[in-house]
Design a protein around this nucleic acid. Structure first.
Lengths: 331, 331
DNA sequence: GTGAAAGCGCTAACAG
DNA sequence: CTGTTAGCGCTTTCAC
């Protein structure tokens, strides 16, 4: 097979200088119409593509954007990635996805790899702890922290969810329905999101004159498995009659556990999930949940990226989107 | 901010030649231990990362892999991407995801962009039609066609699903349950997958002495929307009493339509979906479906990639994984 | 054990 | 309007 088609090969081919070819292909004015047409024709015919590597080496910037997510098997993250990918498509950005599984070590690896390819920006759900000054890897990148926020030594944008009021609504609803043993399963408070949600839950409970029993609260690194386990354990001993979830995967896991146990919701257990995958509307006649504006988030993320990549630069922003309590059958 | 750290900047820094630095960083034997340590220390301190662009320009190959999917909002594709991404993480490959929405034009764009960054391989769910000889874009890439297959002018691997027997099982089951007006909603027969599934359905029906009524068959470019519409239309006129889906998104859409209409399954309509997202087990007491080995598929895809990237090269293979009919409550 | 040169594909900055 | 040169970061080849 023929070698890579380059401006030089085209130039040789046409008996002209590679500079002329470059100019023709870049719509530079100083090229005769005739030459330009010849070059364009030949390039098209040979299937020429500009080498991104060469461009990058000249410091023109790759148009690479990184996306770090804990997982894709979760309708919220999948939708976010989907919408973001579509936006990247439009803006001709290359989207590299890395899954961190919320492990700092994997996150570090991923960021390293993004630096190798000189990604211009990253959107990331930061993992719990980053080790000592490891955030160095983020220096050369424009960073958008998504969902959670970790203190960094330099400016970074953040795209967060204001779920406090929604969680409060959920608690109020449960209390009004007569529940007093309300459990909570949420992300580890080391995570900013976990901290915030637990605080919202606690405040809401106290606002209603209920104390938050430690036995009815489960927090740990968030995962499907953790959600399952926690829900099961809330059914033992000082049994909770209602539960509020504070995390996407946790919610899926806890729900799965409820279904596996054949619990009637809200009969046996009032259930409030987190995130609103399409099937929540249909399972058990409807799962009540904290619903989040995924698409708005993704579009905003894309907008931030766009601003980043066009180099306007300094627009570091923290934006919070409100969540809402969606009442269905399960609570 | 300091400029990019390069072997040259480190060399200058240490008062040695950039070649020595290069050697030290590549574990070349011909470097004194002392020098090597000094270089490694400085590199670590400054947070040096090898420039992927420079490597690529030397023809060392980027370790970039492309993944083209119609969408990510679909548990099957999301799981596939997730497992594949994890595998890429392990093998230090960069995974670039492009969503095509099954539009040839978007597919073409995506492939073009992958050529720009000199991706080494692509795993793609090929879109319907590629226009005239547009497959040129695939020339420089190692291609793995996934789910569907399009004839190409050069060798390419394929990772397919053998769903014929599973579809036959589904039909047999429905017939045994007394259904004769069995509808089918599937992908356009221009797609190899659509063709195969429709053929399997037809053969199974005929094998049972049933004729396939054209009014009970819906085929079109597969999408959630199409699934919805088709299901609704099957309820009109010469009403189907059962339906078999032949596509992931189609299945989700059709199911949504059933639920929205409040249909009892199998009471009002026996339903066989396609693909097995976790919630199928819980909706309506269980959705019967054609279940596919997602993880095995993804792992095989990763294995093929690995073979591709390590350059063994000529290992072009067509692998078919069997699907299975999973009987639950809905049919 | 170390270094200098060359070249990968491209474009900015100068010649002509 | 067109061509030459230089250099982005790196490694291979060939000196020393």
């Amino acid at each position: 097979m023929s070698d890579r088609v380059t401006i030089k090969s085209i130039a040789r081919d046409l008996g002209i200088s590679h500079m002329t070819v470059s100019r023709a292909l870049s719509n530079h004015p100083n090229v005769s119409e005739e030459t330009r047409r010849a070059v364009l024709a030949r390039a098209e015919e040979l299937g020429y593509v500009r080498s991104a590597a060469a461009k990058a080496m000249r410091g023109d910037g790759t148009r690479i954007v990184g996306l770090l997510l804990p997982t894709l098997v979760n309708e919220f993250y999948a939708r976010f990635a989907d919408t973001l990918a579509a936006a990247c498509e439009e803006k001709a950005l290359h989207l590299i996805i890395h899954l961190t599984n919320d492990e700092p070590q994997k996150e570090r690896q991923a960021l390293l790899r993004l630096r190798e390819v000189q990604a211009g920006a990253v959107i990331m759900v930061p993992a719990p702890a980053a080790g000592e000054g490891e955030d160095r890897n983020l220096r050369s990148l424009r960073v958008v922290q998504f969902i959670r926020q970790r203190p960094l030594e330099f400016p970074a944008s953040a795209l967060l969810i204001g779920d406090g009021p929604a969680i409060e609504d959920a608690v109020n609803h449960l209390v009004a329905a007569g529940h007093s043993k309300i459990g909570y399963i949420g992300a580890d408070p080391v995570l900013s999101s976990g901290r915030g949600r637990l605080a919202a839950f606690t405040e809401a409970m106290e606002g209603k004159g209920k104390t938050v029993a430690a036995e009815l609260v489960r927090t740990a690194p968030p995962s499907f498995e953790m959600g399952c386990r926690s829900l099961v354990s809330l059914l033992e001993g000082k049994r909770a009659t209602a539960v509020v979830c504070g995390g996407f995967e946790i919610s899926s896991g806890a729900l799965e556990a409820c279904l596996r146990q054949g619990l009637d919701m809200p009969g046996d257990m009032a259930f409030v999930g987190y995130g609103d995958p399409a099937h929540y509307a249909w399972i058990n006649g409807g799962i009540s949940t904290i619903s989040l504006p995924v698409n708005a988030l993704a579009r905003e993320a894309a907008a931030i990226l766009d601003r980043s990549m066009t180099g306007d630069g300094e627009g570091v922003a923290t934006i919070t989107f409100p969540a809402a309590f969606l009442k269905r059958r399960s609570a």
